[in-house]
Design a protein around this nucleic acid. Structure first.
Lengths: 118, 118
DNA sequence: TTGCGTAACCTAGGAATCCGAGGTATATAC
DNA sequence: GTATATACCTCGGATTCCTAGGTTACGCAA
């Protein structure tokens, strides 16, 4: 059963976007999801079934640390903060993503010198 | 065991790039892989263990059709050609990728109005 | 003629990640 | 008191990629 357009571009980029969101300020999971959706005009939807496992893995890898706190809505929430390793990983991933996106756009735009049989 | 930079951006884009490569002219699997690598200066590497299963699935979905032929190197090879459905899918995926890439870059560039607690 | 490198195909099994579906708890508004 | 929104969680299926293995056959050189 495919998703809406049976494509899966999100794979791998979720971590990157979480790290980036946390680079501005600590935030909790629910807030991260809402921020990403809002800032992309709902083009990117962050499902909770993806978000929380992803956060837990980032924590296991030592890229973020979590701490319980209280939101402005007076609700208990787990606030995540980037570690030094997380910042380094963010830089690396960001870089890698940039190179990747350029490469894909080359494939999508480049007219073939000879893509034929080779 | 992570790959090189433990990131997996390729997910989902392989199909798109295959379809795009075939939009220029029919080609065989091995040629498609070499073309994508060459045209991206080896930033994107297409492994055979990913490529052939992907091609078979595209064929199952009716997006491409295959036909045995002979290459310029006088070797037997399966040539893939885009179907009408394949062209339509290519357009859709291309579009979706464009919107996705824009959305990601928004997350990566946008300064937070208030990504804080929400 | 034997051997090597390259071209070209294939599959099986494991790993990673996303998502749908389900569940919990509580503050505020009505 | 009931609904809505906030905020967390996990399980299991589905998908997709890659590693590692294997096959066939051309062309060239030793």
């Amino acid at each position: 059963m495919p998703a809406a357009p049976q494509i899966d571009f999100l794979r791998g980029t979720l971590d990157l976007m979480i790290l980036k969101t946390l680079s501005w300020a600590p935030a909790h999971g629910y807030g991260i999801a809402r921020w990403i959706e809002q800032c992309t005009d709902d083009v990117l939807q962050v499902e909770e079934g993806s978000l929380y496992p992803a956060l837990h893995k980032l924590e296991e890898r030592g890229l973020v640390v979590a701490e319980w706190g209280v939101t402005e809505h007076n609700r208990r929430a787990k606030f995540y903060r980037l570690t030094a390793a997380g910042k380094k990983q963010l830089a690396t991933s960001h870089d890698y993503w940039a190179r990747f996106a350029v490469a894909v756009s080359k494939v999508l735009k480049t007219a073939p010198a000879a893509p034929r049989t080779a």
